[in-house]
Write a protein that binds this DNA or RNA. Sequence first.
DNA 1: ATCTAACTTTAGACATAGTCTAATAAGTAT
DNA 2: ATACTTATTAGACTATGTCTAAAGTTAGAT
Lengths: 137, 137
Amino acid sequence: MRGAIQLDEHFDRVGLRKTPQRLDVLEHLVRRPIHATADEIFAALNRRDPRVSRATVYNCLRDLARTGLVREVPGEGKAARYDANLHRHHHFICDVCGNVEDIEWFDVPASSWQTAAGKRRIRESEVVLRGVCSRCA
Amino acid sequence: MRGAIQLDEHFDRVGLRKTPQRLDVLEHLVRRPIHATADEIFAALNRRDPRVSRATVYNCLRDLARTGLVREVPGEGKAARYDANLHRHHHFICDVCGNVEDIEWFDVPASSWQTAAGKRRIRESEVVLRGVCSRCA
DNA sequence: ATCTAACTTTAGACATAGTCTAATAAGTAT
DNA sequence: ATACTTATTAGACTATGTCTAAAGTTAGAT
Ligand SMILES: [Mn+2]
Ligand SMILES: [Mn+2]
Ligand SMILES: [Zn+2]
Ligand SMILES: [Zn+2]
């Protein structure tokens, strides 16, 4: 889906260099799809290589997000959570443990929000489901 | 809708005192329904009465949220935004100016998410619409 | 291959957002 | 009035995020 070739293309297209740090941040998000915070990523990468800096993790996330390789997940927590799952999907937030889980994409038809949206130009609609996850049930 | 009597009842029911600070925080959210941050509320209240403390604003928001008089709005910004509109409604976030606007409630039918939600027990589903607001268009 | 300019990382200072503590103030019960 | 509970306050403290300047790295030109 997003192999080495497409990554080369992407970084080339958006004018960013394919650095080890950027790949490490991206790989962490891909391999542990738990919608990690910047600090969780920093802790993991810095444990394996103490030279990696906090600023770099923030820089990488900013650049990866700006160019569309990752996205920020909406939610109430105080630390931003990131997502490398680029398939269109929604999110579920557990009332008990706070974990953020992916929900397979389903469409909220324009007919639902058309009237309520008025003159606004709608680009996308994401659903945030809340409740109790299967583990906490 | 939420007059003095219901407020008395509410504070009584949840075992909180109806203090001036709590009422001021609540009133600010009601009268300027722009989904303000804690710091925006603190700045406004502190300007009118320099004795009001930052900690109190955070304490009030925490207590009002815990007892259901206000709620936190989902979004990517780094500061939490609060909402005293207790009607069920969705939100729109402008790509350009970042303003958070209310969207009249519409239902995302269970049939939409039932399959994707699996074993999770769903309590509510909120929609976050994104695009360009009427002012930025 | 070397040079050069642009890009990136890094440490740490700085800024913003939020929590906690201990003292004071305000309300409630006896 | 007194004792007790709850709430507010200032400021210390923690957490999250941004910025700066120096050093490291890479791509492209010569
Ligand atoms: Mn996701
Ligand atoms: Mn709202
Ligand atoms: Zn859970
Ligand atoms: Zn706008």
